[in-house]
Amino acid sequence: MNDRADAATLIRTAVAADLPALQQIYRAASLSNAGDAPLLLARPEFLVFAGDGIAAGRTLVAVSDPAGDGRVAGFATVAAGPDDGPELEDLFVDPGRRRRGIARQLVRQVAGDARDAGHRRLWVVGNPHALAFYLAVGFVQVDRIDTELGAGLRMSLDLS
């Protein structure tokens, strides 16, 4: 895993005008995993990102080169989780911008915000294909769970 964060990446709260870019990233990133694409294409409703967390201020975007093109490169959405911490609901990076530390930077921001709010853990149900990434940023696998799209990994990140 490349730990180098793109020096010209800014993390900010998403706004309504970001929705088309987030929808494009969501679809492209979801379909970029050859193991998931056939099931997703068979269930197109899973390829639609509604952006429910935007209005509530729960979605963060990573903007590349904010002084230049200002393109959204990735995003993360946080939802209420168990009593000891929130849930990382979405974490997607434009496939053409991967391996630049953008997802790592988003997780770091979400974890820092959760810690600052007094939470002890950050939770995620991750795709098994993303296991190496989540382990690399400090999550530990707690359980395997069934999701509508198959097996998922219940993971937590200690924020203490």
Rank of each mutant, 00 (worst) to 15 (best):
M1I: 11
D6A: 13
A8H: 14
T13M: 03
V15T: 09
A17K: 01
D18F: 02
D18V: 01
A21G: 05
Q23V: 04
Q24W: 07
I25W: 01
R27W: 09
A29F: 02
L31K: 13
N33D: 12
A37K: 10
P38Q: 10
L39M: 09
R43M: 08
P44E: 02
E45H: 13
F46I: 05
F46V: 09
F49Y: 11
A50I: 02
A50E: 15
D52Q: 03
G53D: 00
G53V: 00
A55Y: 05
A56R: 12
G57D: 03
G57E: 06
T59Q: 05
T59C: 03
T59D: 00
S64C: 11
S64K: 10
D65V: 03
P66M: 02
R71F: 06
V72E: 05
V72F: 01
F75A: 10
A76V: 13
A76T: 13
T77S: 14
V78P: 01
P82T: 13
P86E: 09
P86K: 01
E87Q: 13
L88Y: 08
L91Y: 11
R97N: 11
R98I: 14
R98L: 06
R100A: 08
I102A: 06
A103K: 09
V107S: 12
V110R: 10
A111G: 07
A114T: 10
D116M: 12
W123L: 09
W123N: 06
V124Q: 02
P128K: 07
H129N: 15
A132N: 15
A132R: 12
Y134N: 04
G138S: 02
F139M: 12
Q141R: 14
V142K: 07
A151R: 06
D158S: 00
L159H: 13
